[in-house]
Design a protein around this nucleic acid. Structure first.
Length: 424
RNA sequence: GUGGAUGUAGCUCAGCUGGUUAGAGCACCAGGUUGUGGCCCUGGGGGUCGGGGGUUCAAGUCCCCUCAUUCACCCCA
């Protein structure tokens, strides 16, 4: 392979067709679904003042160690956003969205940046679709968020998502659990892997995440025995609401999440095709975030969904059919006429292509057979008579028709297609 | 940040124990009719064998370094 001097940065990708169209198709489904669920679209900058993310992630790796941070020429300390929630929370506060009728329901779509070592289904720039619901403490809000995500998963065609949920408690009950966990693990410190020994110091809840010390973990204190009454009824109500829609959801007692602004509900969704540690989407409740960021206290829930992973789990689903329109070929000297005809047909909404290489008719036809369903040949004495030859590649049949009848011919022989190269 | 694997044409790969001008398939371009595609035939373009250094009479083939990719851990979507 040629090694150009200029290569894309590590962990990034060039998304070429047809994958690029799959992204677009997914985006359309996601946003249409969100709209039908009463969510509005919000777009925030891809970079923020670094403080926006630093404030919310004291023990969060993606904030602490994986930031793409830079100082611009004016001396501002900025960070490429590693996740959507903090950025949306900032926008929520700054735009006074807490004064809007409650609840506030928004979705976002865009690239996220984390300087990790790339591996399967993990990139330094990836795309996330996410939703946030502000203003409600009710379990129905948690359910609404999870249901939206599930619906998008279903509508894009993904089968058998593994939906797991847990509650990490609240300020009232979590401290006691945390203490119990520390005591339990401290007694068994010698049995722990190096990572867990570090976790014990930094973020004890994550001890539950470990895949190595499963033996120690098996007899660790269970979160559910520490839930306060409010937390217990909350997660039970969320679970019941999801279950009532006929969707499978199971409690995962070891599920905790990396972003440390979560309270109560946390959830994560995986898929058999991706391996146990690769989440398709995940999220939870974060009632304290806006307050911690200096805004009014607003309960909130949200999720973030990794599009690359979704598309990967989807296999070949969402792959658009190749564009099958018309190709306008020209005989020598008739290129100008061909362009005019092509543009006219395009104006009627047909997918139309033509030669821009000045090629022979033979070469044009070869190209046309790859790109189009039918070819229209412009030129010769037919053109003088107001007639064009039109050939259908699938049947090989060719006929002469009046050039003003082209539109009606194509209407009967082509699917009209103006949605950017995709056909459902 | 840690560990493993891999790097030969656009793509998928061959190149035996180091030995003349580095190959195949696919893809691309052209020709095989003066105005007609798909199949077939012929021809063509395209590689400083990731880069640098070393060993050797001789290296794509051996050694070292480096870069990149990839997989796992960490962490996460």
């Amino acid at each position: 392979m040629i090694r150009p001097e200029l290569q894309r940065p590590t962990g990034t990708q060039d998304i070429l067709a047809p994958q690029s169209w799959r992204f677009e198709k997914f985006r359309r489904i996601a946003l249409d679904t969100a709209k039908a669920y009463g969510f509005d679209l919000i777009e925030t900058p891809v970079f923020e003042q670094s403080a926006v993310f630093l404030k919310v992630g004291e023990s969060t790796d993606i904030v602490q160690h994986e930031r793409y941070a830079f100082t611009d020429v004016g001396g501002d300390d900025l960070t490429l956003r590693p996740e959507g929630t903090a950025a949306v929370a900032r926008a929520y506060i700054q735009n006074g969205l807490y004064n809007e009728p409650k609840p506030l329901k928004v979705v976002y779509w865009g690239p996220m940046f984390r300087r990790e070592r790339p591996q399967a289904e993990r990139y330094r720039q990836h795309t996330q679709f996410g939703a946030e619901l502000y203003g409600s403490e009710d379990p129905a809000a948690d359910a609404e968020i999870i249901l939206l995500a599930c619906r998008v998963v279903e509508r894009t065609g993904l089968k058998d998502p593994d939906v797991r949920i847990n509650s990490i408690g609240c300020v009232d009950c979590r401290p006691a659990y945390r203490q119990a966990l520390i005591e339990y693990y401290t007694e068994r410190r010698a049995e722990l892997c190096q990572d867990c020994q570090n976790r014990l110091e930094k973020n004890p809840l994550r001890l539950l995440d470990c895949k190595v010390d499963v033996v120690v973990r098996a007899t660790a204190p269970d979160l559910s025995t520490f839930w306060c009454e409010a937390c217990r009824t909350h997660i039970e109500a969320v679970t019941a609401a999801i279950g009532a829609t006929g969707r499978a959801i199971r409690r995962d007692p070891f599920l905790v999440r990396g972003l440390d602004y979560y309270t109560r509900t946390v959830f994560e969704v995986g898929h058999p095709s991706l391996g146990p540690n690769t989440a398709l989407f995940g999220g939870g409740r974060y009632d304290g975030l806006t307050g911690a960021m200096g805004g009014p206290e607003s309960p909130a829930v949200g999720f973030g969904m990794g599009i690359e992973r979704m598309l990967s789990a989807l296999g070949t689903a969402l792959t658009p059919d190749p564009q099958r329109g018309a190709y306008v070929a020209n005989l020598p000297g008739f290129q100008t006429h061909a362009i005019a005809v092509a543009e006219s047909l395009r104006g009627e909404g047909f997918a139309v292509d033509y030669d821009v290489m000045g090629r022979s008719l033979k070469a044009q036809l070869r190209d046309a057979s790859r790109r189009a369903a039918v070819v229209v040949i412009i030129g010769g004495e037919e053109w003088e008579r107001g007639v064009v030859e039109i050939k259908d590649f699938s049947s090989g049949e060719q006929q002469a028709i009046g050039r003003h009848d082209l539109g009606s011919y194509l209407r009967h022989h082509l699917e009209r297609d103006s949605d950017g190269g995709t056909t459902a």
